[in-house]
């Protein structure tokens, strides 16, 4: 499986945010999108996830052995936005159960996923009782309970403490080594050593602003 972004342009209310982005991700590769506030990280991620229409260009997911893209690619993605998509009135288990059934392709059990994010034994608690960091970790557990090859995560480590950041970096590495892809927008380091790792690409949207017609990645 291969994700190909061709000549992607994004805009908000007619204002161009980024232009002419070209890159591709193979299985096991990650893209880290960096940039200052308002540089268009979230917009890019929402365009890739199909939540916003691109003003030009295309997002294609190509299955190995085929020429045409799988449509629509966003069904192969997990999207973790700024909000956690948790219902506070429901318990942690009910929340995760719902997402597991709704997204399909169950991967691991609820309690196993909670152990992986460092929150064992909280299945029965209402989500409203959790702290901000704990809610974030439960919504990360959401990515683990059902399998999607591509994770699109927007500021995934906001509200997380240092130990949880390390935990999340490990989860990302696990996902990559099992053949998944990750697209992460962040202004902190993800905790993965990106300098020495060929599988991690970076894209700085600030530079895209300055020199828009150049190919930046790949």
């Amino acid at each position: 499986m291969k994700l190909v972004i061709e000549n992607l342009n994004g805009e908000r209310s007619g204002q161009p945010i980024f232009s002419s982005l070209n890159f591709s991700l193979e299985e096991g590769q990650a893209l880290v999108v960096t940039g200052s506030n308002g540089s268009g990280k979230s917009t890019l991620l929402r365009v890739i996830a199909g939540l916003l229409n691109a003003s030009d260009g295309s997002v294609l997911l190509i299955d190995s052995g085929q020429d045409e893209g799988v449509s629509p690619p966003h069904e192969y993605m997990h999207y973790l936005g700024h909000q956690n998509a948790l219902k506070l009135a429901l318990s942690v288990e009910e929340n995760l159960n719902f997402w597991q059934e709704f997204c399909g392709i169950p991967l691991i059990g609820i309690s196993e996923a909670l152990v992986k994010v460092g929150l064992p034994g909280i299945e029965h608690l209402p989500a409203a009782y959790l702290s901000a960091g704990q809610k974030r970790r439960v919504s990360i557990a959401k990515l683990l309970v059902s399998y999607k090859p591509i994770w699109v995560v927007d500021e995934p480590t906001s509200a997380l403490d240092k130990a949880s950041e390390v935990l999340f970096a490990k989860l990302i590495e696990e996902h990559l080594s099992s053949g998944g892809m990750v697209i992460a927008a962040t202004h902190q380091s993800l905790g993965i050593d990106s300098d020495n790792n060929e599988q991690i690409k970076t894209l700085n949207l600030d530079k895209n602003r300055l020199s828009s017609k150049e190919q930046l990645v790949d």
């Binding site: 996830a49 993605m77 999207y79 909000q83 956690n84 998509a85 997402w99």
Partner: peptide, 11 residues
């Protein structure tokens, strides 16, 4: 408001 709609639309 809690981001659920985005995920539902994607999935």
């Amino acid at each position: 408001e809690d981001g659920t709609l985005d995920v539902i639309i994607i999935q």
